[in-house]
Nucleic acid binder design. Sequence first.
DNA 1: CTCGGACCTGGAGTGCGCTCCATGTCAAGC
DNA 2: GCTTGACATGGAGCGCACTCCAGGTCCGAG
Lengths: 123, 123
Amino acid sequence: MLYRVSVYTPAEAVEETGFTLDTLRYYEKIGLLEPVERNAAGQRRFSEEDVSWLGMIRCLRDTGMPIAEMLRFAELVRAGQHTIPDRIRLLEEHDRRVQGQIANLTERQSYIHHKISYYRSVL
Amino acid sequence: MLYRVSVYTPAEAVEETGFTLDTLRYYEKIGLLEPVERNAAGQRRFSEEDVSWLGMIRCLRDTGMPIAEMLRFAELVRAGQHTIPDRIRLLEEHDRRVQGQIANLTERQSYIHHKISYYRSVL
DNA sequence: CTCGGACCTGGAGTGCGCTCCATGTCAAGC
DNA sequence: GCTTGACATGGAGCGCACTCCAGGTCCGAG
């Protein structure tokens, strides 16, 4: 294995992305991932591009974007450069939601802090 | 309706807590809410205490606490004053998770910001 | 040559947290 | 007095995002 381009076996892709293999197959099945290259035996070989796209997916997923919207984003990406303004709009809107989540969480956290303080004061 | 203690009809409890009536019934059914008082006709009349407990539930739910853990918390509350140290521990641990969520969200958000910047730079 | 293990597929199953439904009772305003 | 609408119950169903399974292929190490 002297020269090796950046190609990942399923196990390596799992390692790299943190998704389970089942999830990767699921994402490919629903079209969140474009059909992944295969070796002669039909086994998947994930490209560097696949892995970096999965990084984006992880980010969106972990910030609560539903799959349906990730699919819309994937379609924009596939449709080509002219959809960049749309992609920006989509990400900006998502960003606002993330901002809202953070604000909400922060507010709730202060409620929790107050409750803890109250409990401490009762001891 | 001259003198009225703080008692809420189902519709008022919905208004006050933001939960749907189905959800309130569900919470009562699974024991997250203690059996709610009823009027002569068997209709629920939520007390001020119910509503404030639901405020706590909303806070925990909106910060991602699973129902099973809210149930544990509810049991501690019912068990009496001597469980206050346990309640504090539970809330503190949850607080750490919330902190983690905020940190994670903030980090992901910067990824999104970078992506947006990149897209803008390509235009 | 054999064995183990990584991988394949299609499809069924899971867990969470509700949400909806059919059917029935009750109450309050006109 | 009657209608309308809020509320009751038990239980089925749903949407999401996986997750698991049976049964099969293929390859490399020993």
